[in-house]
Every structure is written in C-alpha cells, then in structure tokens.
Amino acid sequence: MSFLEVFQYTRQESVIHNLDPRAKLVISICLAGISLMFTDIIPMVLMICFLIPLIAAAKSLKRWATSMRGLLPLLLFIIVFNTLLSTTEYPFSHSIGLSLRLVALMTSFSLFFLTVHPDELSQALIQMGIRFEFAFAMSMAMRYVPTLGQEAYAIMDAQRARGVELDKGNMLKRIRNIVPIIVPLIIVSIRRALSIAESMESRGFGASEKRTYMETLSFRKRDWGVVFISLLGLVILIHFRFFFSLPEWVSWGLPF
C-alpha cells in the first residue's frame, strides 16, 4: 500500500505548503480535470512533466517517487489487461496512455493531500460553510486512528495470550477469528468515546453559539493568483481540446 503515501500529509516548509488549502484544492481539481480530458501519451507525458516540478516545489519528490514505485504493479496490471481486452486500434499504446493518466491524476490530488494538514483542511471546510461539529468530527477521526490501531494490537495480543490462533486455518476460519478482536474493540471504543465526550464537555464544547478560532485562514494575493492561473489554464485547455482540431503530434501513439 506504499502508493498511498503520496496522499499523506508531510510537515515541510515550502511554497506549496504555505498556500491556502482552498487555493490548493482549486489547483488540484483543475490539474485533475486537465488530466481527464486527454488519453494520448504525449499530453500525459507533458502533464507529468508539468506536475513533477510542482511536487519538487513541495519538497516531496522522494515520497512521490516511492509512491509511484509502489504503484508500479497496479500500472502493469492495467497495461496487461487493457492491452488484452481493449477494442481500440492500438491497444498497447492506449493502455500506456491510461496508466500515465492514472499517474497524472494521483499526482494532481497528492499536491493537495501532501501539503494540507488535517487541521487546515477542517479549518478550510469550516470557512467554506461546513458546521464546526462535522469538520471537527473529521479531524478527530484522524486523531484517533493511531490510538485505535494500538488498541487493536493490544486486544490481538491479549487474545493470542489466551490461546486464540489468529493466523491459522483456512480463509473462513480466519474471517471468524476477527470476531474475538472486533467485539472487544467496539466495546472499548464506545467506552473511549464516552470518556472523550465527557472531557470535551468539560472544556466547553458547544458552550457558545459564537465559537472563535485561534487561527483563521486568509486568502492572500498569491492564493488568488494561483486560483486565477489554474482556472485560466483549465479554460484554455478545454477550449483547445473541444473547439479546435489538435495538431497531429498530440495524438501520436505507438503503432501496436
């Protein structure tokens, strides 16, 4: 699952990290939209060549490269099956184009997820009009994922110590083995949820109609610039793609 790493926030000090999350959302969506408009190899290569410097600006090239290496088996799978099953004229060339598109799409979205801290994301949602409770629930989910994981391991160890053989037996047996883990895990989680609720209540959760925020996001000039350029790029490319006949070289492909 290492290819998912590219969607995980990494703390860095970079130009991209410092942009407003809303601006980054716009640029990511525009880039993904552009990637979806083409399937040929040349435009996809150009797209990736455009994206890589952006990832480099976010100081995350290494992480991106690891992720892409992790993605390799999936890409090969796409290429093999598409080549065998596709009905297009040059199935291999088409499959290459498709897998490059997947890379471009992932990279476009990773630009957002790599550089937006979950807290910033929830703050952005709040400022976009989502109720605090919902946005906060999301960031709390992120907060408690590792805690829950730890708890699951503790329960697994406890059950092993009592003789439950978790990784033995056939498929059906293994699935049934999940029960002695899941049941205590749910009970523990409900208890924990109550205790968290108690502590949040004691800290005034829901006390005031007018909740304030220590940090609020502010859209600066450069954020507007990014939004403007992204939208302009998107519009221009839509224009060329759908209202012009593209030059020959754009649709160049391998002859098999």
């Binding site: 800290r203 005034g204 959760f205 829901g206 006390a207 005031s208 109609e209 007018k210 909740r211 304030t212 925020y213 220590m214 940090e215 609020t216």
Partner: peptide
Amino acid sequence: IAFGPENLGVEP
C-alpha cells in the same frame, strides 16, 4: 490548548 477558549468564544 486553544480548544477550550475557542469553545467559549474568547477573542483569537
């Protein structure tokens, strides 16, 4: 640390 005061609506 900010969570409590934010809930109470203290100025940023």
